[in-house]
């Protein structure tokens, strides 16, 4: 194809997206669109399955049977969401194994919030309430993103995720109205998860490299700062309601803007965690690699067995 022809195709492509038409796997797409989508969707998928680990840490120790089954079902959903998203990514011509390889070798990123440890039961509440809350704000707009398989996966994810945040908030609420010890546990978890949750919505607009292109392709509908503001505005009253205090001395309602003003985010910490210096980066990755490597003989066995059965069937047919 000549450069001019490509340019022409690109123009038609961009117009299609501007008209809110969907792009499907076999449609022509610019290479950059494909690459950007592989990167974003796989990053999203990786976040789901790495995100299973901090919460999985408390399944065996959940304080009641009701909490145990709810947490199990939630973490299982995350495996499901990872699976939907890897499948969407595979329609772009890359295999799940290749994507795993990118994760395991550190080439691909995942949400860095999962590099923080879950050290008390209240952390499970905080993750559901704050981390899933921030995730939902990120994810809902993606239900109408331009790439069909991604949008469809997100519809399913959002539908299933609706119980996750409630589950977390209910845990926090129960603790907040429990004994002083429980309330302290809840407040401590909020103190530790609040700032990382704000960071989860991405670097500030001034620092964000992908925003403009992503807006055009509807991978993003609002900027990181807008999403962060939305998250803060919706979460502060929820904290008030259960009597917990947001750990930000500068947090204040601003009558003029109709939003909360908030304090400075420690972006140094954010970038350090992204670069691999979070408290659990190493643990998370080695848990993933270990599960994958220890599962190899199992996956091989299933393939060998399937082949033997197929061969037997063929022999019978002859």
């Amino acid at each position: 194809m000549s450069e001019k022809e490509i340019k022409n195709l690109e123009e038609i492509f961009e117009q299609k997206i501007a008209r809110d038409e969907k792009i499907e796997p076999k449609d022509w797409m610019p290479e950059k669109y494909r690459q950007t989508h592989i990167r974003q969707i796989s990053q999203h998928a990786h976040s789901e399955i790495v995100g299973m680990l901090p919460e999985g840490n408390w399944i065996t120790r959940a304080p009641s049977l009701r909490r145990k089954v709810a947490l199990l079902a939630k973490v299982q959903d995350e495996a499901g969401h990872g699976l939907y998203l890897y499948s969407a990514c595979e329609t772009l011509g890359i295999s799940r194994e290749e994507l795993y390889d990118q994760l395991h070798t550190g080439k691909a990123k995942y949400s860095s919030i999962f590099n923080y440890p879950t050290i008390t039961w209240a952390d499970i509440g905080a993750i559901g309430w704050l981390v899933d809350g921030a995730a939902i704000i990120n994810q809902v707009p993606l239900c109408s993103t331009s790439y069909g398989p991604y949008a469809r996966a997100m519809v399913r994810v959002c539908k299933e995720e609706s119980f996750h945040q409630r589950q977390g908030y209910e845990i926090m609420m129960t603790l907040a109205k429990g004994t002083p010890e429980q309330k302290e546990m809840a407040q401590d978890a909020l103190n530790r998860w609040w700032w990382p949750s704000l960071m989860m919505l991405g670097p500030t607009d001034a620092e964000s490299v992908h925003t403009e292109q992503s807006m055009k392709w509807k991978l993003k509908r609002k900027t990181n700062d807008e999403l962060r503001q939305q998250f803060i505005d919706q979460t502060v009253p929820q904290a008030d309601l259960i009597g917990l205090t947001i750990p930000d001395a500068d947090l204040k309602w601003n009558e003029e803007t109709g939003h909360y003003d908030f304090g400075e985010i420690d972006w140094d910490e954010f970038w350090q965690v992204v670069k691999g210096h979070g408290p659990c980066n190493h643990e998370r990755m080695s848990a993933r690699v270990k599960a994958w490597e220890k599962g190899e003989w199992v996956r091989d066995a299933a393939m060998a067995y399937a082949k033997k059965k197929e061969d037997k069937k063929l022999k019978k047919a002859i």
């Binding site: 399955i49 299973m52 680990l53 999985g56 399944i59 065996t60 145990k68 089954v69 199990l72 079902a73 973490v75 299982q76 495996a79 499901g80 990872g82 699976l83 890897y86 848990a287 270990k290 599960a291 994958w292 220890k294 599962g295 190899e296 199992v298 996956r299």
Partner: peptide
């Protein structure tokens, strides 16, 4: 439920968790 998140692949992980549930 100790295995949730550590299965040989996602499909099997989900299946084992279903049995736990």
């Amino acid at each position: 439920s100790e295995l949730c998140g550590h299965g040989p692949n996602l499909e099997t992980d989900i299946a084992l968790t279903n049995m736990a549930l």
